[in-house]
């Protein structure tokens, strides 16, 4: 891994964002709108506060954390799409850049996006609804780290699929993550799922994060078990999808399709 090559790709994306209104909207305005809509819903639900206090406090927090996962995934997949749209893959991979350095750069972009979106959303939640996401306390950090990792897994998976199947798969950059939403138990506990789906959700690291969050808010017990499962599953899958990315990369070089992706 060579630092200057990763930095080059990051700077390239920053140039891109600096000048592009739609891209800035993606990290500032859309998260803001998301939050406003859900904020009104919680305000409405708060009128029933007697019956469901936990729901009200949790909903906004869950939304912000879900967005961490979503933007983390986008940071990877969209960064790859940008190179396809710019027909830049040939310039990149005929240089000394390695696939791992490429992935590392998309991960840095993903961290930028997550940070920007988290700041926007936490600030809005606080200003408009008096909701302080930091009341979750220091445990918030390991939860966020795990969600970022899950986002990377889905992002690298999506990227490999787009590389392999080309233009038709591009829409996955936006839709793939929602395939995982029902089994991530973002807004409801795992126990409401039908039995067979519980098993599926259980091997999804994000479900452990959101379960741990709810547990923490309800009992204030340290969510060590949830975090342990989430981290273990995350590292296992991340290793797996990175290996698969390399495999796909080699298949594409063999078929001569690497420089034709998106054409």
């Amino acid at each position: 891994m060579t630092y200057h090559r990763i930095a080059a790709l990051v700077v390239r994306h920053l140039y891109l964002y600096r000048r592009s209104l739609p891209r800035m909207m993606e990290i500032i305005y859309w998260p803001f709108l998301d939050l406003v809509v859900w904020g009104f819903i919680t305000v409405y639900l708060a009128t029933f506060q007697g019956q469901m206090p936990a729901v009200v406090t949790f909903l906004l927090g869950a939304l912000i954390l879900w967005d961490v996962l979503f933007r983390s995934q986008q940071g990877i997949a969209i960064s790859f799409l940008e190179e396809i749209w710019a027909r830049n893959l040939m310039n990149l991979f005929a240089s000394p850049l390695t696939p791992n350095e490429f992935l590392a750069a998309t991960m840095v972009m993903s961290l930028f996006k997550v940070t920007a979106v988290s700041i926007v959303m936490s600030l809005c939640a606080w200003v408009f609804y008096g909701y302080n996401v930091f009341m979750i306390g220091l445990w918030l950090m390991p939860f966020i780290v795990n969600l970022v990792l899950t986002g990377w897994i889905i992002g690298v998976l999506t990227t490999s699929l787009i590389m392999r199947f080309g233009q038709e798969a591009e829409v996955l950059a936006w839709s793939m993550v929602f395939l995982f939403q029902p089994i991530s138990c973002v807004f409801y506990p795992l126990e409401v799922l039908p039995t067979w789906l519980k098993g599926v959700a259980w091997i999804n690291p994000a479900a452990h994060v959101f379960e741990g969050m709810r547990g923490l808010l309800a009992t204030h017990a340290a969510p060590l078990a949830s975090l342990g499962w989430a981290a273990g599953l995350n590292l296992f899958y991340l290793g797996l999808v990175i290996a698969w990315f390399h495999h796909t990369f080699n298949v594409c070089k063999d078929r001569g399709s690497l420089v034709r992706v998106g054409e």
Partner: peptide, 29 residues
Amino acid sequence: QVNFSSTYMSMPYALTVEENLSIIGRLYG
């Protein structure tokens, strides 16, 4: 130590000419 150019290639459209060259400079260290 190698480079290439082709009529059929392109460079990122949303960057200026100078920005594109400077990215290449960084990429090759």
